[in-house]
């Protein structure tokens, strides 16, 4: 009797596992097939439509032309030349903005009064569209790397600051009390409780600001520059060189994608203690 029940239970378990695996596999197959089809249809349709003059290739270009343009830009070294500009502006601006954002958040939350005095002004500054300051920044800092760095830093600063403050202020008061009774100094509290607690909030902000920091840098390049992917794109308007523009845009997207992917393992590592967060990107 007992043996029979056991084997039936085993069979049930096995069947459940098989079913689950089968449905997972069929899901994965259909999704990947779908992606492939979509890719082929998009690229192929575009190419074909341009060849048949359903789309005007001067305006829409076509995938093969874009690939060729990208290859020419890459081979001539001009793609790397411009990428270097944009990468430098982004990396320096992003790092600077993030650092200042975290430092400002720490300093302002140290005591209540300065925070509450400055809060409305910071909110007002946050509300001003930073990109609109582009021409002013160019007016102040010229057409070199500096204005782009400043714009990228501004785009990064506010979100990082805001999120870090939210993180810091959401620290559990109970936990603070427990540590104070343990004899923690204010520095201890920041180092061992408040900052580790706020770190995931800061990282979320960093992930969100990567694309907008690049946006800052590119706008800076539109407004006056001698190099950079944004400059490259802008320059092509007069030549109607849509293929080159698209090639440069694709490069930009790739850069954003790479940086986001780079941040992913860091986030996962910081949240390694939390099963619920660990998985999502």
């Amino acid at each position: 009797m007992a043996v029979v029940t056991l084997s039936r239970a085993d069979r049930a378990l096995q069947r459940a596992a098989e079913d689950a695996q089968r449905s997972r596999r069929s899901w994965a197959v259909s999704v990947w097939l779908g992606r492939l089809c979509l890719l082929v249809v998009l690229i192929g349709g575009w190419e074909l439509a341009a060849d048949q003059h359903l789309l005007d290739p001067t305006f829409t270009s076509k995938p093969s032309a874009i690939a060729r343009a990208w290859w020419q830009l890459a081979a001539s070294g001009s793609l790397w030349h411009h990428t270097q500009y944009t990468l430098t502006e982004f990396a320096v601006g992003f790092a600077l903005g993030a650092l200042l954002g975290v430092v400002a958040a720490c300093l302002l939350t140290l005591s209540d009064l300065p925070y509450r005095v400055l809060e409305p002004y910071l909110l007002a500054l946050y509300g001003i569209p930073k990109l609109a300051l582009g021409p002013l920044i160019v007016l102040w800092f010229g057409v070199g790397l500096l204005p782009k760095i400043v714009l990228a830093a501004m785009m990064t600063f506010f979100l990082v600051y805001m999120n870090t403050v939210v993180g810091i202020r959401s620290t559990s008061g109970d936990m603070v009390n427990v540590m104070r009774v343990m004899g923690a100094t204010r520095w201890d509290l920041y180092r061992r409780l408040v900052l580790p607690h706020a770190l995931p909030y800061t990282l979320t902000a960093l992930r969100l600001t990567i694309p907008i920091a690049i946006v800052g840098a590119i706008l800076g390049e539109f407004l006056g520059a001698t190099g950079g992917l944004g400059y490259l794109i802008y320059e092509q308007v007069t030549f109607l060189a849509v293929d080159k523009m698209m090639a440069a845009i694709a490069t930009l997207a790739a850069i954003v994608l790479v940086f986001r992917l780079l941040l992913l393992p860091l986030e996962r590592w910081v949240n390694r203690h939390d099963k619920a967060i660990g998985g999502n990107g």
């Binding site: 559990s172 109970d174 936990m175 009390n177 427990v178 540590m179 104070r180 009774v181 343990m182 004899g183 923690a184 201890d188 061992r192 409780l193 580790p196 910081v270 203690h273 939390d274």
Partner: peptide, 28 residues
């Protein structure tokens, strides 16, 4: 700081291992 306080919620630091949590006061 001459008293120890065990609150109703365990208030362990989620990013610290069990051992690191237990050692917190000594670390301080």
């Amino acid at each position: 700081t001459d008293v120890g306080y065990v609150t109703q919620d365990d208030n362990l630091l989620p990013w610290r291992t069990l051992q690191a949590n237990v050692e917190l006061a000594l670390e301080l």
